[in-house]
């Protein structure tokens, strides 16, 4: 596991000043005027946002800032009221979620979605794209899919080894611990050979022993040329691995920039303090201490 104390950060991602909606040198996702409201409440209202390619971008913000909703909108799991967004130059407006995934933009969920009554190996094999045997007509003729299925199995076992899950491959996913399910979900996402990996709170509910290995996996994704966009509440993790941080509050992007600078910004502090009534106080105080430390430096 290549998990150094200070991972190499990507720099020079943006053009001009690091302000909300600033241009990126090589954007993977470009979002314009995406708006979504539920009843009278505006959940997401993003003017312009670009996600840099081959970098790890963290999406942070207090609870109810619209991070997960934005995730849902970008992956086609929800439809915005207005707005457009592009993935590697292709417009994704109105594209159903499964097609978004086929284009190489894969996501995980805040509440882990392990397929409990399938074995770990079957979970993995489901991730693979363009399987012949997944067509109902070819499914009846094992000759047409056996060979491909064997190859997929090899690839799955390979990945399971990397994630230390190979010993569990024959078990039902239901028997895994919470952290192992997170690992499985990430490994399964990698089976789709994604370009952009979107992780919704990958660390939530994971015990500290597994946190290090998960961090290592996320960093590896970048090494292998993938782009990562993740939502996270753990500020230590964000500072540790993110190359770029986007801060959301009340549906809007209020700040973005490299982690070292963005957390000092008044807008970010306001976002958290202004929202503290909606947030768990313990979490808020934790966050303030991080921000204070940054100030002291």
């Amino acid at each position: 596991m290549s998990n150094n104390d200070s991972p190499i950060k990507s720099t020079g991602l943006h053009i001009g000043e690091a302000a909300p909606g600033c241009k990126k040198t090589d954007p993977m996702l470009v979002i314009d005027h995406v708006k979504k409201s539920f009843g009278g409440l505006t959940a997401v209202d993003v003017e312009h946002l670009e996600i840099p390619k081959n970098a790890i971008t963290a999406l942070i913000g207090p609870n109810g800032a619209g991070k997960t909703t934005l995730f849902n909108l970008l992956t086609g799991f929800d439809t915005p009221d207005t707005g457009a967004w592009e993935f590697l130059g292709t417009s994704l407006s109105g594209v159903p979620s499964y097609k978004v995934a086929q284009m190489g933009q894969v996501r995980t969920f805040q509440l882990t979605k392990a397929l409990s009554l399938l074995t770990v190996l079957d979970n993995m094999k489901l991730g693979s794209k363009n399987q012949v045997g997944e067509s109902i007509f070819r499914a009846l003729f094992p000759g047409s899919w056996r060979k491909q299925d064997a190859e997929i199995e090899l690839k799955a076992i390979e990945l399971l080894k990397r994630f230390n899950l190979d010993a569990k491959q024959a078990d039902f996913a239901a028997s895994l611990s919470g952290g192992q399910r997170k690992l499985l979900e990430m490994a399964r996402a990698l089976m789709t050979d994604p370009v952009l990996v979107m992780l919704d709170e990958p660390m939530a509910g994971v015990n500290p022993a597994l946190t290090q290995s998960l961090l290592g996996h996320v960093l590896n994704l970048k090494k292998e040329g993938m782009t990562v966009l993740f939502v996270e509440h753990d500020m230590h993790m964000v500072r540790h691995i993110a190359d770029w941080v986007v801060v959301m509050a009340e549906g809007k992007v209020v700040a973005e920039g490299p982690p070292e600078t963005v957390m000092n910004e008044q807008a970010v502090i306001d976002a958290y303090l202004g929202a503290h009534q909606d947030t768990d106080l313990g979490v808020v105080t934790g966050r303030i201490s991080i921000i204070d430390q940054e100030k002291d430096k």
């Binding site: 499964y98 995934a101 996501r107 979605k113 397929l115 979970n123 489901l126 299925d149 996402a189």
Partner: peptide
């Protein structure tokens, strides 16, 4: 593999959708 997808849908269709 078709049956695998079907069983996956029974477990959680959103997860299957997210896999394309």
């Amino acid at each position: 593999p078709w049956g695998r997808v079907i069983k996956g849908i029974r477990e959680d269709e959103e997860a299957i959708r997210a896999l394309g």
